[in-house]
Design a protein around this nucleic acid. Structure first.
Lengths: 340, 340
DNA sequence: CACCGCGATGTTACCGGCAACATCATGCTC
DNA sequence: GAGCATGATGTTGCCGGTAACATCGCGGTG
């Protein structure tokens, strides 16, 4: 279970390399920086020395002089949630590809003091930039009121789409059209927390789609993304359920909705339909398997890193690709039929 | 969605502080290091200057001289899995409490070359230590064959418990005793991948418990922790199911098992019982809610950091606390009854 | 053949801390 | 009251890089 590791000899520096190669350390630096004007034989000697000594630049020392590091502090939170988690994973990959390392700082959303403290800690390090992956207003707020000395990219919302780039038929619209196609007219939305940008966006999408498709919204209930909140939304509904379709803001919530519906004697999808958002791996194995909207969080994380890197390099940021989503139809939705 | 941030003035250094306070920079350092022999009035002046300038030590420069940094590279993988994810979260918190930052490096378990590359990248940075949270043999292997120049702590297995510290009644034993109490005799284990230490441990626990409780194991099927693998294990069972209880290696697998059982016409828990491990938040909202074994991954992550920190500081590592687990009984298990 | 220009390489200073050593002003001893 | 130990603070060099500037040697030119 435990492996100790004897500390071996100190790592080689450019001075070691220079000595072995019989040149000055500046020549070593030049080679490392890709300077062209080095004579081939000199170049070879230095390259050989680097190889022999297993030289690795000390990135710490480098960033001390250049004032630029290759670390990106990533502020995130709720990484047990699928969205933030996958976004982070995507960001991690994109950063690594660019030779950057992510310092992941997980914030406690509900503790503003802790958020400050974490941001403070991060700013002591020599950072190339700060990537704030904020999904909630509190965090967004904390970030916006902080002055960083380095480039910052604040990505808010787990699925915020600029209105103009949301083709009808994308996002929740696809879900509601699917339900409308099945004959549903009365729908309920079990939303996420109101302080999550993503939750508000989904509500907007939901309401826009309802209006456009001529459906009737029988309620928007705020949950907290959890299965529990989905369960309670349905279980505590005071009277008979007014809708035949329940649009949950994410898959976990949908899971809770299904359980509560079962307990109230409704069969899914025979009596009512339920949909989720995210397409978590488990969604295909719910009972019944869940109709849901697949989002590409990983790409979002990668995009965010690209934006930040552009900012760090002082170049024009690449255009944000449109968010793609895909309706996955499974067995939790079915044609509406007269209530018994 | 996007917030630019103008680069403001450069951060203050000890020299700035010294100038403002009218002392030498060494005095500033002394204050920072908690040196006692500074005259109160001098101390006050320096402290005041630090406050006014908003001075923050440049940790990069510090570690360049001390040769010690406050970064820990954390090698992990599959962070979408609940176990690794929560372990990481716990490690993160423990590290932050100790003033360390984690560089999280997510490895692709199935790509040895990428593992090497990632480890290589990490070793360019000035690290205080390496925390390898490895759950699979491939990663363990890659780590073990790498020479780090810094302290390493390799934590293998998501729930490996030294045999002597596993009181009977803990771990899967509790699950199987629960099933035995309900009258079950024939059980099947849907295990994790064979190259995960944690999966092998659970198999051992399962087999030991079966033997001790006088049950009969009707099979151990290797899955891959996913709901899909649980589903397929049951769906593809060639003949009539030989058992009345199915012990899944984790909750996701159990979810798939339940769906497959439903589809084969078995009702849970009326006809057969199903159990999981982990107690993911959703488990309480499966249909039916899942009887499972709750593990404290967060604590495991924290413990791992403690072990590494002890190593970094060159002191004796604190004893590893025993792993706690707790049986959570819900509605996926019930008394055995004669098959119809 | 002395001079100039330029390419190749060496020298030096600096980034922001830390620590060893130097210095200076006390107060105490004898 | 001189000598000295001691406490408080200043000076210097170094960590491992980078970059500006200096130098050196060579070939071409008038």
């Amino acid at each position: 279970m435990i492996e100790a590791q004897p500390s071996v000899e100190r790592p080689a520096t450019i001075y070691d390399v220079a000595r072995v190669a019989g040149v000055s350390h500046a020549t070593v630096t030049r080679l490392l920086k890709g300077y062209a004007g080095i004579r081939p034989d000199t170049r070879d000697r230095v390259a050989k020395a680097i190889r022999e000594l297993g030289y690795r630049p000390n990135l710490n020392a480098r960033s001390l002089t250049t004032g630029r590091s290759h670390r990106i502090a990533t502020l995130t939170h709720e990484i047990t949630q699928v969205g933030p988690n996958k976004i982070l994973e995507g960001a991690n990959m994109a950063a690594r590809d660019a030779g950057y390392l992510l310092d992941v700082i997980t914030l406690d959303v509900h503790d503003p003091a802790a958020i400050r403290e974490s941001i403070d800690l991060a700013s002591q390090f020599d950072l190339a930039g700060v990537l704030a992956l904020s999904s909630t207003d509190e965090v967004t707020n904390a970030v916006e009121t902080t002055t960083f000395r380095v480039p910052l990219y604040l990505a808010t919302g787990t699925d915020k789409t600029p209105p103009d780039s949301t083709p009808a038929g994308n996002g929740l619209f696809a879900v509601l059209r699917h339900l409308a196609d099945l004959g549903h007219r009365d729908v309920v939305h079990i939303a996420g927390p109101h302080d999550w940008v993503g939750a508000r966006n989904r509500i907007r999408e939901y309401e826009a789609a309802v209006a456009e498709l001529g459906l009737r919204s029988r309620g928007v209930i705020h949950g907290d993304w959890s299965a529990r909140s989905g369960y309670e939304a349905i279980a505590s509904w005071p009277e008979e359920l007014p809708a035949t379709a329940f649009v949950a803001a994410n898959d976990q919530t949908a899971l809770g909705v299904i359980l509560a519906l079962n307990e109230r004697g409704y069969r899914v999808p025979d009596d009512v339909s339920v949909t989720g958002v995210d397409d978590i791996p488990e969604a295909a194995y719910f009972s019944p398997p869940l109709t849901t909207l697949r989002l590409d969080f990983t790409a979002q994380g990668g995009d965010a890193v690209q934006q930040l890197l552009a900012r760090i390099d002082g170049v024009a940021p690449p255009p944000l690709p449109p968010r793609r989503s895909e309706l996955i139809v499974r067995r939790s939705t079915g044609p509406v039929r007269p209530r018994v």
